[in-house]
Simulated scan of single mutants.
Amino acid sequence: MTAKLAQSPMVQGWCPGAHRPMMSGDGLVVRVRPFRATLSPPQARALCDLARRYGNGTIDLTTRANLQIRGVAESDHPALLRALAGQDLLDTDPVMEGRRNILMAPDWQQGGLTDRLHTMLLETLPKLPVLPEKMGYALDTGAEARLTRGAADFRFELDTEGHLLLRADGVANGIRIDETNVMAALTELLAWFIETGGQEAGRMARHLRSTSLPNAWQVTAPRAPAKPLAPGPTDDGLILGVPFGSISAAAMETLIQAPGVADLRLMMDRLLWLRGALPQAPPGFITTPGSALLTTHACPGAPFCPRATVETRALAERLAGQVPGSLHISGCTKGCALPRRADITLTGRDGRFDLVRNGAPWDEPEATGLRPNDLNDLTGYA
């Protein structure tokens, strides 16, 4: 173990899409963004079949409630795109696919406010200026505020009286709007972001650290965040946790075939909501609250990612529960599994680990050069 070592912050890059996949150690990673973060039973069954036919049979659930098919051969990529388009799981325009970064309130209802906002946003996105790739939108307009911790730059929320507001990520308050001017307000806020140099910062919250948002955009407070959802039965189905966001196609297929399933909704924190049914979940899912695996995050690591020099998930399973809060095992400084602060972060570097307390993988470590065998007990760092 060595003393603290300063490390340059890692500028986050692009995320894999369907049209623009990323090469990993086991083949292409093809990200699928289901519309409204929802899969119908036929779409879910088709996705499982595609993961087996063109990938390695594993489906990832990301922190932004998207899915990834892993292990796709480059020669199979065009056929996979055609199959996804046939299931209405793909934007025909590659540019639009990259811009459709939308967090959806999990309890959205057809024709409801969240659904209407989603439709308006899809109609408006092609008319908006191009933003840095990871910027996105949160439609936090369900029965309770569920997306406060989600990564989004432009937040549609409700105030304490139920009125719609738009809030820039990084400030506490927003501006009250209504459905007649909602997209005009978004366009105006986005224009301010660009005119004041926000493109260089790359994210709204990062930009607001050095640039003041006009007071007119900071008038109304949003309602308080609700308690996070957790695995277990609900009034309308079953919520399941997905350890490390990794699902076998066979397990997902078993879930979706349960009698009475209405749809499968993808949620933050690597949760799935199986609506309309209470089936017996197959092995590999978290079915009750309080599991340490819900607060333990790990990317695929080596040898599956060419950036990683360390194995991650076996270590994460071994250390789960040793930290009272969140634990993140990251194969490199990019931090794909949890691109934000954790109570304890272990970052792979040159075959060993750096340890960051209360920070992200690209932050300054407290200790460096730790071997996996040195990491049997984290209680001293918690």
Rank of each mutant, 00 (worst) to 15 (best):
P259N: 08
P231E: 00
D374E: 05
W192Q: 00
D377G: 04
T62I: 00
D374K: 02
D153K: 02
P126D: 14
A151E: 11
T38H: 00
T287V: 06
E364S: 08
A83C: 01
R99M: 00
Q199S: 07
M22V: 14
P106C: 06
K334M: 14
P324C: 11
D363R: 06
R371S: 13
V219A: 15
S248W: 09
Y381I: 04
L165E: 09
A262F: 07
E311Q: 06
A308R: 00
Y54F: 14
R209N: 15
G162D: 13
L327G: 09
P42M: 01
D350A: 07
I102M: 05
A292D: 08
P233N: 10
G290M: 06
P324Q: 10
E366K: 14
L89A: 00
L165P: 15
A184D: 15
L327R: 10
W192L: 00
P306N: 04
G284L: 08
L89G: 01
P283I: 07
P282D: 11
D140V: 04
A51P: 15
C332K: 12
R209K: 12
L240N: 03
I69M: 08
S8T: 13
H118A: 08
A44C: 01
E97T: 03
R20C: 11
R313Y: 05
K334I: 12
N373E: 09
G237P: 04
L189V: 01
A314I: 02
A46F: 05
S291C: 06
P233S: 11
D354N: 10
A281L: 12
R349P: 10
L166E: 15
R20P: 13
L39H: 01
P300E: 00
F35H: 00
T2A: 05
M22F: 09
S24C: 07
R33F: 02
H118N: 10
A250R: 10
T234E: 11
V171L: 07
E161M: 12
R313D: 09
L293I: 08
H19Q: 09
A314G: 07
D269S: 12
A250S: 12
G290S: 02
L113S: 01
S246C: 04
G325Q: 10
P106I: 06
D76A: 06
K127G: 15
F353I: 01
D374Q: 01
A292V: 03
G86K: 01
R99K: 12
C48G: 05
A185C: 03
N376K: 11
N358K: 10
G25H: 11
Q110H: 03
N173Y: 10
T119G: 12
D269Q: 14
Q68D: 03
D91Q: 08
P289V: 00
M23V: 15
Q257A: 08
T296H: 03
I286E: 04
D343A: 07
T124Y: 15
D263Y: 03
D76M: 05
T333I: 09
F193C: 05
L89W: 03
G290R: 02
P361Y: 11
G290Y: 00
E74A: 08
N66A: 02
R357T: 01
I69R: 02
V310F: 06
L67D: 07
F154M: 01
P282T: 13
A85M: 03
S210Y: 14
G331Y: 15
S326I: 13
G321C: 12
R275Q: 13
A277V: 11
R307I: 09
R116D: 15
A337K: 13
